[in-house]
Amino acid sequence: MTVVTLKIDDRDVSGRDDETILEIARENGIVIPTLCYLEGLSIAGACRLCLVEVKGTSKLLPACATRVSEGMEIHTNSERLTQYRRTIIEMLFAEGNHICSVCVSNGHCQLQDAAVALGVDHIGVPYLHPHRHVDASHELFGIDHNRCILCARCVRVCDEVEGAHTWDVGVRGIEARVVTDFSTPWGDSDTCTSCGKCVQVCPTGALFAKGKSAGEMTKQSEFVEYLVAMRGRRS
């Protein structure tokens, strides 16, 4: 492991060569939008919001998954990137059924926050109006697939931190959904420990605790980073 210097948005910064662009940007107060990333969990590289431009390659690279190296020159917020990020957010809204006014997470939703931060003021791609279900079979929690953005944070926290591996992704493409125990109702799960970690890490109102009405569901996901650090197996 060595220390490297690099430039992010024309600022000279330094870091270790086992750190990612995202980690170093955050240390230096440079904001790169993310949705699937959560400190303490493995990297998915799925939402593509964190893509940045790196000098010397024509490919856009995910900041969450790309290690820094000596002399790198990175741009995190060009007009092109902002445009791509807006469209990705629009795609997420168009793909599900997001009716914020009645959502438990209204006002505490990371999808909403990202849309506001990126200045998404209308949805320019056609709504797909999918038929999606709500599973309220669990005693304490529920999942409303209409609001799921398939970031797989719930899948990862359940497997990597809780060790239960209740969640998975089933089917593929536009039909993909998170599922519990081979697509059986969550309430029937033999593996779920009812720890609620998945609910806390879910960036939207897809996973919620029962008994909350619109706007009442706030989430705490910082415990993941803490737990993982305390157990000493940061990846």
Binding site: R48, I88, M91, V125, I149, L150, A152, I174, A176
Partner: peptide, 21 residues
């Protein structure tokens, strides 16, 4: 491509469905 997309990343999962439409 739409039906073979694994569905993991947003641009391919949603984008191929939008382009197909």
């Amino acid at each position: 491509c739409m039906s073979e997309s694994c569905g993991k990343c947003v641009p391919c999962r949603v984008g191929t469905a939008q382009m197909y439409q």
